[in-house]
Amino acid sequence: MINMLVKKELALYFRNLNNIFLPLVFFFLIISIFPLVLGPEKNLFDKIIPGIIWITAILTTILTSNNFFKDDFNNGIIEIYLTSDMSVELVLFLKIISCWFFTCFPILIFIPLVSLLFSIPFQNSMVILLTLFIGTPVLISIGIFGSALTLGLAKNNILTPVIIIPFYIPVLIFSASAIEAVSTGLPFEMQIYILAALLILVLPIMPYLLKYTLGLSINN
């Protein structure tokens, strides 16, 4: 059965390739706006490019997870989740993972290219990649939780980000701190461990939390 569910998730993304490409294009679009606004001075970007990459990653995850349950809600599939006698948590877990895989993973693949554009040293760009790899699943999970809270209130697209961005702060701080540590030659393992701890904390709980939240918010 897991096979079938995975196949269905894959089909959902591959039949709408826009779902995969648009976040990537959006990411590059925002990244390339910064030099236009701030001027292309290398010294400046050496200092702020990790922050720019992270803020852009946040914007991307917000936009991809904002209306995560909208279609399922309009089609009535949320009702299926809630009236099922099977383990819906598994389905929700697959949905989180596939959302991350198809919207964030492509960005990770292109981080070396971004490093090239802004001439980020190899080691720094690897740490950026590592923090994004551990951090974005947490962001996506929190974003999906936000979209579950605001189920059926989609007329207000800015509501969900306003509610969930404060919850992004720990991930942001530790990621930024790891990147800063590596660029000043300090040890960064501690921050990575904390990020990993956040991931291990959030990811297993999230499907259960989501099911509970959907059960409440379906009556919004």
């Binding site: 809270l149 509610i163 404060p166 919850f167 702060i169 720990p170 530790f174 939390l209 409440l216």
Partner: peptide, 18 residues
């Protein structure tokens, strides 16, 4: 209420990270 509960769990984490 649910948001507040999740927020309460988060406040120490946010505080510590800040």
């Amino acid at each position: 209420s649910l948001l507040a509960i999740i927020g309460l769990i988060n406040i120490p984490i946010i505080h510590y990270s800040v």
